[in-house]
């Protein structure tokens, strides 16, 4: 386990394999020739300026964006156009969005129970039990019967994390989970994610929170203009980035 950081690319059974991925929006190349492997239990932080393709990359992994060419394999399942593959992958991959995307007409508890019942086929008592347990884990079980609009942004995002966890995913994707939050709520959400990391969850997180990256990331991947420019362990990356682009980026966000 302590060799995790270096295991990443060499792991014979990685959780996620992304190979030569290309994604275009019209004539704009959002991703050009991106390859990345995520080992089981590995925590990766994706960073880079806006428009660098980092969100697009994780959205491709569970096929919310459809890639144009290249391969994606999640937990041994190759992502094709077949609905079965897509749904198999999606039910193993949890995703947390920048804007929470909770279902406003359902209570916190119902938000968490819907997919396990409809996709996993759980009976209501089991789904309920699981939802309560995970809401307790993100410390929001006392709000279980409220509706999303009655919660603060930080609380909503923690519900969104619990909702994703209720599917018992093998990997969690976070798409700028704290960017839409007021500063005082960032901490409570990051703490939740850190705890999740300590439990051994595999995760890929797009974020600009560098303190968080230092604390949990096994690897930092820096993207710019649709390509991976540099990757490395956080202490090296933040202290002495190799490329000028990474240096420029770090200068901008630190100052």
């Amino acid at each position: 386990m302590q060799q995790q950081c270096t295991v990443g690319p060499a792991d014979p059974f990685p959780m996620v394999i992304v190979e030569r991925l290309v994604k275009r929006f019209g004539s704009f190349n959002a991703l050009s020739d991106v390859s990345l492997k995520v080992a089981k239990g590995e925590k990766i932080v994706l960073c880079g300026p806006s428009g660098s393709g980092k969100s697009t990359l994780i959205r491709c992994i569970n096929h919310i964006e459809k890639h144009d060419s290249g391969r994606i394999v999640v937990d041994g399942i190759e992502l094709t156009d077949r609905i079965r593959d897509i749904n198999n992958i999606r039910s193993e991959v949890g995703m947390v969005f920048q804007s929470f995307n909770l279902f406003p007409h359902l209570s916190v508890l119902e938000n968490c129970m819907l997919a396990p019942m409809k996709v996993r086929g759980l009976a209501e008592p089991e789904a309920h039990e699981r939802a309560v347990a995970l809401l307790r884990k993100v410390r929001i079980h006392d709000q279980a019967h409220k509706y999303p609009a009655q919660l603060s942004g930080g609380q909503q995002q923690r519900v969104a994390i619990a909702r994703a966890l209720c599917m018992q995913p093998k990997i969690m994707l976070f798409d700028e989970p704290t960017s839409a939050l007021d500063p005082e709520m960032v901490k409570e959400v990051l703490e939740t994610i850190v705890e999740l990391a300590q439990d051994g969850m595999t995760m890929v997180c797009v974020t600009h929170e560098m303190g968080f990256a230092r604390e949990v990331a096994d690897r930092v991947v820096f993207m710019d203009l649709g390509s991976i420019v540099e990757e490395g362990d956080p202490s090296t990356f933040f202290r002495a980035p190799n490329t000028d682009r990474a240096k420029a980026f770090l200068n901008r966000i630190i100052h």
Partner: peptide
Amino acid sequence: NKGQFEACQALALSTFDTYRHVILPQVFR
């Protein structure tokens, strides 16, 4: 909101369940 559809996708909800339980109830409301 587009995010509602994306959240349903991320949860692997089928198209039927997406409309039946998430999208249409919001529209009617």
